[in-house]
Nucleic acid binder design. Structure first.
Lengths: 194, 194
DNA sequence: AAAAATATTGAACATTGTTCGATAATAAGT
DNA sequence: ACTTATTATCGAACAATGTTCAATATTTTT
């Protein structure tokens, strides 16, 4: 790789790093071109040679967040606590909740981000990978469940848990105590995967 | 009421009407002071004598939307289809889905709106009234269920359904066919209220 | 009718996303 | 090695938008 490409990659990484830091510290609402430029040591114009626009930059920050989230769920998945598949799904739901609480700004950026236009395929795929992992677990619980049905149920389970976590953790309607939220999640997961 | 108050109320109503139209036709992302001023026939400055800022205006639009949503659920609640309480809860969830699909922009404005700061009490109360209605139904299904538990479960049920509808209807990850979504919702409601 | 209170206006300011011509740095060609 | 072409960077400028405020018009009070 030439000097050119290397320098480009470093610059792009620096910009993304700066944007990521801003989002996770202050929320996506405080992400703006000038602050990113200042924090990554370049001009506003340069950002536009590495990202199409601010939206694209935010999208890539979200992709990183989603990847960290997938990593957190991976960890749970590997350490089988011996509580069976349903218990593992509960643990994954807890991990989702903990991630949302522990990386609140980054997590909420995943959803605060403009609902307006559809996400690019590569980012949808990031989400779908998550669904597929859950679908696999559901198939372990219900042998013979067709792929498509498993995927659909996984999506529904994920959506339900997301809704509960979202409403419980976001300040919009007042936060629920962690323990209460955990109980609700456990009850819902167990009922939905039964 | 003097001429002054009347004129004030009319003006405030006109502004809110204009804002509501813009939100429901183009989405909250296209709500801006100048367009509202033009559409309601006044200057930008005047808007600020009737609403604290654009955020407050959006909030009042959302309050109207929530009130229409409550009305839609009310209708379902009154026309007992004879399918029992659980069936009624399903019907309410369908109504929620239909409202979201039928008034997509207005509905998504309820949630696209800045998660950042907590909602004012009067608007939280609008949501809580909804929860209480559902809680009442849950208590009919489970006589003896304490108010607090019923409220909590109602909130969870609402959140879960919202998550499912949200992920299914928003274009973000691709829409689900209405029938598929309806089946998922039915299954979830029945499992969660059991 | 005069004075006080209130509402409205629209120009002005601040912030922010984005573009673009000028300039600098690198790569390719000879 | 020198020239030319390509690419990256800068930062000033533009457009859109939220918000304020002094000036003006309107309504109420005295």
């Amino acid at each position: 790789m030439g000097v050119r490409e290397e320098s480009n990659e470093r610059r792009r990484g620096d910009i993304l790093d700066a944007a990521e830091r801003i989002v996770s510290e202050k929320g996506i609402g405080h992400l703006n071109i000038r602050d990113v430029a200042r924090a990554s040591g370049c001009s506003t114009g340069t950002i536009y040679t590495h990202f199409a626009d601010l939206d694209a930059l935010a999208l890539h920050v979200n992709a990183r967040t989603l990847s960290r989230l997938a990593g957190a769920l991976d960890t749970i998945e590997r350490e089988d606590g011996g509580s069976g598949i349903a218990g593992q799904l509960c643990a994954m739901a807890y991990a989702y909740m903990d991630f949302a609480a522990g990386h609140y700004h980054a997590w909420s950026a995943l959803f605060e981000h403009r609902m307006s236009r559809p996400l690019p395929d590569w980012h949808r795929e990031d989400h779908f990978r998550l669904f597929r992992r859950i679908a696999g677990k559901l198939q372990m619980l219900h042998p013979g469940l067709p792929d498509e049905a498993a995927f659909l149920q996984a999506r529904t389970l994920y959506a339900a848990i997301h809704g509960i976590v979202s409403l419980g953790i976001a300040d919009r309607l007042g936060r629920l105590p962690d323990e209460t939220l955990r109980e609700q999640i456990r009850a819902v997961v167990l009922k939905l995967v039964s």
